[in-house]
Design a protein around this nucleic acid. Structure first.
Lengths: 341, 341
DNA sequence: TTGTACGCGTTATCAA
DNA sequence: TTGATAACGCGTACAA
């Protein structure tokens, strides 16, 4: 007699025996209660409670070739922008039977591809992935995946499946337009990391300035170094050293904007009178600073929430109203661009 | 004949056939190459490559009652403090065969317990959990779990298994001592969230002030509201309204400290001359602000890194040098507490 | 609505 | 060092 011991915990067979039914009835009662009569369902639920039965997700995944995992891939764990979205995803998914599997691609396309491969290997219920700049191989993997796929944080023309986000090009354009409207003339751009979304913000910014006749490539200062507050102070210092007539900057993100503010304060430059500053994302601190900082507000929590809602709808067989959801953005004007003309 | 289709991808049996060996030999070659002869190992590795075989983690977990999952439970996804540690955990774990399973307890002990239950149900290779304040039930679950368990972010007397972190009590004490040394007399405390670690920082702070003869409970201002920069400005305003003679504050964390700085600037109070400010954690922005902000530096990345190293060592059967690892902290003095006496 | 029989892909057990 | 066989716990297919 060769018995293996297993994990020792109750199985669906134990529940079935206690409830006096077959295992498949228990299985059905747990996954879709409507398929089992009230009478048996009650008995089964009682047995589950008494035995403290917990479904064995690996066995379930193996038998059904479908796991309850939702794979989520983001390029950064420390960027606040993704933190809010992740929080929303966890908040939404924790209700149901799903498990989040989180991957960090570190802004490296090949790492992203590897993660997608690994996650798809688990037969996920759905995939959520940041951005629209996947490699061809990654796109193909996801297209062939038999599960809903949502690209988040931005929108574009060519979704793998679904998309929730906003247009970074339009966001950058709005920032540029705003600075011109406030009367600033020599308007610069500070950019860190310069991932594809940053590039699109820059393109939108350029577009606005060209239209306004104020585009000057000499005022654009970017680096691939990752973003930080200190870097904002550094970059604005460098740009001013190059062009002392600079009178406003659009910062790639809020960390840089805060750093630029500190840099100006150290150099004795008055914000907003001698220098206008606008950031991107509108993190909580932007409203609290002194002077308060203008920014482009994006609803990152909503992006995560809606992404999960779209997934749930598709899994429930609902026909989606739209595959692409543009949540837009909103310019929050504050003191840093409100100069007395 | 009733064939089910499976996931369609190559299985260990396909590899075995191609290599001309049995399945179990392939299994062994993959898990512990030293158990298989060079000759067969080479053939197997070739077959794996040719078929593009990827092990099926659910099947493995089912058969072995042990998954490659490392469960990680933190109380917040948006708090930068945990973001750095998480990044380290992902960096370390991405190398090996492990998968991170991340849970967000939202600072709710019951949610934490539920997550622990769920994760343990997956037969994890290890568990990492923030803090030392688990419920009795959670402790018992983890104690009975047949895997390494590391409590992170703080150290204490009574580890479930292992611990990596530092003493929040001592950190708070160092902050209080520093403010007294700099000559501040009426020293307050600003605290948000007030989770157990915040409480221990406060206790350390009180201890220092009592020793220095400067303890005044009237100068302690706390709230259970979650921390933010805006809140820092608000709290220091409230505390000053109550006690206009306040001349320094120890802020529970850096967000509050930055907010307190902004609050002072708005009210026309000079930092550090009329108000000393010290934060906790030393986020990157603290060195960049104007004036720069003193803080207690903690090495959050190292905490994650060391936690994973301890896990790997224990899984490799090594005898740990120590079950409790205190990584300490370091006071970073900056302008916000450097007044001209 | 309920049940029977079997397979999902892997590893533990025992034997050689 | 290698292999045959039987689990691991559950869901699918088919039948009643």
């Amino acid at each position: 007699m060769r018995k293996r011991k297993g994990a020792g915990r109750p199985t669906i067979a134990d529940v079935a025996e206690k409830a006096g039914v077959s295992t498949i009835t228990v299985s059905r009662a747990l996954r879709d209660p409507s398929k089992v009569s009230d009478h048996l369902r009650r008995k089964i639920n009682n047995a589950v409670r008494k035995l403290n039965y917990v479904p064995h997700s690996h066995a379930s995944a193996l038998a059904s070739t479908r796991s309850n995992i939702v794979g989520v891939i983001v390029p950064s764990l420390t960027n606040n922008v993704f933190a809010d979205t992740l929080r929303a995803i966890y908040d939404e998914l924790d209700q149901g039977p799903f498990q989040v599997q989180l991957g960090n691609s570190r802004y490296v396309a090949k790492d992203e591809e590897r993660l997608v491969r690994t996650f798809l290997g688990q037969g996920p219920s759905a995939m959520i992935i940041a951005g629209t700049d996947q490699t061809d191989a990654t796109r193909e993997l996801l297209q062939n995946a038999e599960c809903p796929v949502v690209q988040i944080m931005e929108v574009g023309d060519d979704p793998i499946d679904m998309m929730v986000g906003f247009s970074h090009f339009e966001g950058g354009k709005a920032a540029g337009t705003h600075l011109m409207q406030k009367g600033y003339k020599r308007i610069g751009f500070l950019g860190a990391r310069m991932d594809p979304r940053s590039h699109r913000r820059l393109e939108g910014f350029k577009d606005a300035l060209r239209i306004g006749g104020r585009y000057d490539p000499d005022l654009i200062m970017t680096t691939t170094v990752s973003s930080s507050v200190s870097l904002g102070a550094e970059l604005i210092g460098q740009l001013r050293a190059r062009r002392s007539d600079l009178d406003a900057v659009f910062c790639n993100n809020d960390d840089l904007a805060l750093g630029a503010l500190f840099g100006c304060q150290k150099a004795g430059i008055s914000v907003p009178d001698d220098m206008g500053i606008i950031g991107f994302n509108d993190l909580e601190m932007m409203a609290a600073s002194h002077p308060s900082l203008t920014s482009i507000r994006t609803d990152r929590y909503a992006i995560g929430k809606r992404a999960v809602e779209m997934i749930k709808a598709e899994l429930d067989g609902e026909v989606p109203e739209q595959k692409i959801l543009d949540l837009g953005f909103e310019l929050q004007q504050r003191e840093s661009t409100s100069r007395q003309k």
